[in-house]
Deep mutational scan, measured.
Amino acid sequence: MSGYILFSSEMRAVIKAQHPDYSFGELSRLVGTEWRNLETAKKAEYEERAAKVAEQQERERA
């Protein structure tokens, strides 16, 4: 899992709640824009969280 995927899943729900009429493409475009504009430190937080999720998933598969 990547930081972007984690961010995307969280942001998509927020944007969808604010704009229920937006298409999947419109939501994706907005999520991508939000990610590109996100501060580097915040991106790093998402990357760290994603790494922890990936480690947990790997342990569960073992």
Results as ranks from 00 to 15, higher is better:
Glu48Val: 12
Glu39Tyr: 01
Glu47Ile: 05
Ala62Phe: 12
Lys52Phe: 07
Glu45Ile: 08
Ala13Met: 07
Val53Ile: 15
Ala62Arg: 12
Gly32Asn: 14
Ser23Asp: 10
Asp21Arg: 04
Ser2Tyr: 03
Ala62Met: 00
Glu26Leu: 04
Ser28Lys: 09
Ile5Thr: 15
Thr33Leu: 14
Gly25Lys: 12
Lys43Glu: 00
Ala50His: 02
Ser8Arg: 15
Arg29Ser: 08
Val53Gln: 13
Asn37Arg: 12
Ala13Glu: 15
Pro20Lys: 05
Ser8Pro: 00
Gly25Leu: 10
Phe7Gln: 02
His19Arg: 05
Leu38Phe: 00
Glu10Ala: 02
Lys52Met: 10
Asp21His: 10
Ser8Ile: 05
Glu58Val: 10
Val14Leu: 13
His19Gln: 04
Phe7Pro: 02
Gly3Cys: 03
Gly32Pro: 02
Gly32Val: 11
Leu30Cys: 15
Gly32Cys: 13
Asn37Cys: 06
Pro20Ser: 04
Glu55Thr: 11
Tyr46Lys: 01
Arg12Met: 13
Val31Arg: 00
Ala50Tyr: 03
Thr33Lys: 14
Thr33Val: 12
Val31Phe: 02
Glu10His: 04
Tyr46Pro: 00
Glu47Val: 05
Asp21Tyr: 05
Tyr22Phe: 11
Trp35His: 02
Glu39Trp: 00
Glu10Arg: 01
Tyr4Lys: 13
Glu10Met: 02
Tyr46Gln: 00
Ile15Asp: 00
Tyr46Trp: 12
Glu10Gly: 01
Ile5Cys: 12
Glu58Trp: 06
Val14Ala: 12
Glu39Arg: 05
His19Asp: 03
Ala17Asn: 06
Tyr4Asn: 04
Val53Thr: 09
Arg59Gly: 13
Gln18Thr: 08
Tyr4Thr: 01
Gln56Leu: 10
Arg36Val: 08
Gly25Thr: 14
Lys16Pro: 00
Ala41Gly: 10
Ala50Lys: 00
Glu60Gln: 09
Phe24Cys: 14
Tyr22Glu: 06
Glu60Phe: 07
Arg59Cys: 12
Val31His: 01
Thr33Tyr: 10
Ser2Ile: 03
Arg36Pro: 00
Ala13His: 14
Arg59Gln: 15
Leu30Ser: 13
Ala13Cys: 06
Glu34Gly: 06
Ser8Met: 11
Ile5Val: 11
Glu48Tyr: 07
Tyr22Asn: 05
Gln18Leu: 05
Arg36Ala: 14
Ser28Ala: 07
Ala17His: 08
Glu26Lys: 14
Ala54Trp: 10
Glu55Tyr: 10
Glu34Arg: 13
Thr40Val: 09
Asn37Glu: 10
Gln57Thr: 11
Gln18Gly: 05
Gly32Gln: 15
Leu6Phe: 03
Glu34Ile: 10
Arg29Ile: 04
Asp21Ile: 02
Pro20Glu: 04
Thr33Ser: 11
Asp21Glu: 14
His19Lys: 08
Lys42Asn: 03
Ile15Phe: 15
Lys43Arg: 13
Glu48Phe: 09
Met11Ala: 05
Arg61Val: 11
Ser9Met: 10
Glu45Ala: 09
Ser28Tyr: 03
Glu10Cys: 00
Leu38Trp: 00
Trp35Ile: 01
Lys43Phe: 00
Met1Gly: 09
Ala44Arg: 09
Leu30Ile: 12
Glu47Tyr: 05
Ser2Thr: 09
Leu30Pro: 02
Ala13Tyr: 04
Val14Trp: 05
Val53Met: 15
Ala17Val: 05
Val31Gly: 01
Glu48Leu: 11
Val14Asn: 12
Glu45Asn: 06
Gly3Tyr: 00
Arg49Asn: 03
Asn37Val: 04
Arg36His: 12
Pro20Asp: 02
Lys16Phe: 04
Ser23Gln: 05
Glu55Asn: 10
Phe7Ala: 01
Pro20Tyr: 01
Arg29Met: 07
Ile15Ala: 06
Arg59Glu: 15
Trp35Ser: 01
Lys52His: 10
Pro20Gln: 05
Phe7Glu: 02
Arg59Phe: 12
Phe24Ile: 11
Leu38Glu: 00
Ser2Pro: 05
Gly25Trp: 08
Phe24Pro: 15
Ala50Arg: 00
Arg49Met: 05
Ala44Trp: 08
Ser8Tyr: 05
Glu26Gln: 12
Lys42His: 05
Gly25Gln: 13
Gln56Asn: 13
Arg12Val: 08
Arg12Trp: 12
Gln56Phe: 11
Thr40Phe: 07
Ser23Trp: 00
Gly3Leu: 00
Val53Asp: 10
Ala17Phe: 03
Val31Cys: 09
Glu26Ile: 02
Gln57Met: 08
